[in-house]
């Protein structure tokens, strides 16, 4: 090992850890403990969804038919692609290829912006259609022969839709910020195969956000077979 690499490793090891392995294990464990609280945090919303869906199924079906499956499906694909580039980026850091890591993480950021852009288009569509809960909420099925059966409870569907996807989008924005931070710090040569814990942990965060969407997509967009356009 060259002298400069030893210095990097010594700088990276905090004094309260015995060695780099213990430090890495502790860091991963800590990140998972945080993700555990995140799972329970989103879990509360999923639980509310479960209760109201069981109670007002038809109102939820009518609400979900307003979702654009193609935009939602595209966004699912965009997130899965971003998870791939993220995973490859973490591996590049592990294999001492900082430039490759930066390129892969920049692509991840682009996918992140792509997701948020598509989400913004969807939000705009719902907003102009008065599908935002509150005093201006107004729900039409779009088919005069079948007026909404239960618009009051469809409003609950939209409350959950905005809350769950909104919280998810907030996590995406934070995730893009974190990946950008890794790119900046990584460009200064902060990470080595011995020390890349921040890259690993931001990767865990990014995959977790992808994981939440994997459940949100079928639950919010695909409740019933009748999709329309």
């Amino acid at each position: 090992m060259a002298t400069s690499e030893i210095q990097v490793a010594e700088r990276a090891l905090q004094h309260h850890f015995a060695d780099m392995d213990q430090q890495k294990e502790t860091s991963t464990f800590g990140m998972w403990m945080f993700l555990l609280t995140e799972i329970m945090f989103f879990g509360g919303l999923f639980c509310a969804y479960l209760v109201y869906r069981a109670s007002y199924y038809h109102a939820f079906v009518e609400g979900s038919q307003k979702m654009n499956i193609w935009l939602g499906g595209t966004n699912t694909a965009v997130l899965i692609c971003s998870s791939l580039t993220m995973a490859l980026g973490v591996r590049a850091a592990q294999m001492a290829k900082p430039k490759l890591m930066i390129v892969l993480l920049l692509i991840t950021i682009l996918f992140g912006f792509g997701f948020l852009g598509i989400k913004a288009v969807e939000y705009h569509e719902h907003w102009v259609n008065h599908e935002f809960p509150g005093p201006n909420f107004h729900f039409e099925t779009g088919d005069p022969a079948h007026p909404p059966t239960d618009p009051v409870h469809t409003e609950i569907y939209f409350s959950l839709y905005w809350a769950m996807t909104g919280l998810h989008a907030l996590h995406m924005i934070i995730g893009v910020g974190l990946v950008a931070w890794i790119v900046i710090v990584g460009a200064r040569g902060a990470f080595t195969p011995e020390y890349y814990n921040p890259v690993e942990n931001v990767g865990l965060y990014w995959h977790f956000v992808d994981l939440v969407w994997i459940y949100l997509f079928p639950l919010l967009y695909l409740i019933s077979k009748k999709h329309g356009g």
């Binding site: 294990e25 991963t28 464990f29 998972w32 403990m33 993700l35 555990l36 799972i39 329970m40 879990g43 509360g44 999923f46 639980c47 479960l50 209760v51 069981a54």
Partner: peptide, 21 residues
């Protein structure tokens, strides 16, 4: 240790859902 953490989170989520339902 990490595996136990993940399994615990799924278990607690299951408690949240099942007891509520």
């Amino acid at each position: 240790l990490t595996m136990v953490t993940v399994i615990a989170s799924i278990f607690w989520l299951f408690i949240l859902f099942s007891l509520t339902m």
